[in-house]
């Protein structure tokens, strides 16, 4: 190894260390703020448990929604050949660049009482603001683009000759999607879902403005953190750590090889 190369590799290691120090120091400081043995006591608050239930329930529904609708939609965008594809891809990413509070106002102007569809929804007896349905809408709106982006990339990266081979062997389009495309893209889809989940469970701004912060109804964990800041910093930190544990757990699980399925289908000759 020449001196120059050594210098360069050393530089790379330094940037890696800096990156980790910068990103992890605040998280480590959070852990130091509250002694771990105090955590159970701080989390036993009924406000925390009800916020946890609201968060888990609304996120579960939101995730089911964007997985079931987003996955086929992403498949079509990734493999379809049509004009205006770049525009469509950009449009899907737009909610990502909206500041959360603006996302909340956008949802209100669309589905709020005075919004575009406010009177239509009211006519159907649907009032979204201050309901859990509104939390689901807010979470889906901000989290789905993360999943869609990942899913489109995953499907676009598929080897089309494998899909064509399945078609040549007589598989229907639905079968190609279900038996070839989905299993091959599974790892990337799971990673994309984990990112979307983490974004959704931490959602704050859009939920606050669109769904409000009604105790036991729309107060999610991130909203509870903010409300607790005024009362008890330690309790806010404890809720924050709970959120971190949930998201961190999901992100980690998504990276581990799945236990429930056999080895990734490297050969597409699985019998059908």
């Amino acid at each position: 190894m020449t001196f120059r190369t050594g210098l360069f590799l050393g530089g790379l290691v330094v940037t890696l260390v800096l990156t980790f120090l910068f990103l992890l120091t605040p998280i480590a400081a959070l852990l130091l703020q509250v002694p771990p043995r105090d955590l159970p006591g701080l989390l036993r608050d009924t406000a925390v448990s009800s916020a946890l239930i609201v968060s888990l329930k609304t996120n579960l529904i939101a995730n089911v929604l964007f997985l079931s609708i987003g996955t086929p939609a992403a498949y079509l965008i990734a493999l379809g050949r049509f004009r205006g594809r770049p525009v469509l891809l950009t449009l899907i990413e737009l909610p990502l660049v909206l500041p959360p509070a603006v996302a909340g106002i956008a949802l209100l102007t669309a589905f709020g009482a005075f919004g575009l569809f406010g009177s239509t929804l009211a006519g159907l007896g649907i009032v979204l603001p201050f309901t859990q349905a509104a939390v689901v809408v807010a979470v889906t709106f901000v989290a789905a683009p993360f999943y869609l982006r990942a899913a489109i990339s995953a499907f676009a990266a598929l080897d089309r000759t494998q899909l064509d081979a399945a078609r040549d062997l007589g598989a229907s389009e639905a079968m190609v999607f279900r038996r070839i495309a989905l299993p091959l893209a599974a790892d990337a889809l799971r990673a994309g879902w984990a990112m979307a989940f983490a974004r959704g469970i931490g959602e704050f701004g859009a939920t606050l403005l669109f769904a409000g912060s009604v105790a036991r109804l729309t107060e999610t964990l991130p909203l509870a953190v903010y409300a607790q800041l005024d009362v008890n910093l330690d309790s806010a930190v404890a809720v924050g750590l709970l959120l971190l544990a949930i998201s961190g757990g999901v992100l980690l699980v998504a990276k581990l090889p799945p236990l429930w399925s056999s080895a990734a289908p490297s050969s597409t000759a699985g019998g059908w």
Binding site: G112, F114, G118, P129, L209, G212
Partner: peptide
Amino acid sequence: SVIALGSA
């Protein structure tokens, strides 16, 4: 804002 936008 929330009242002006009709949520409340």
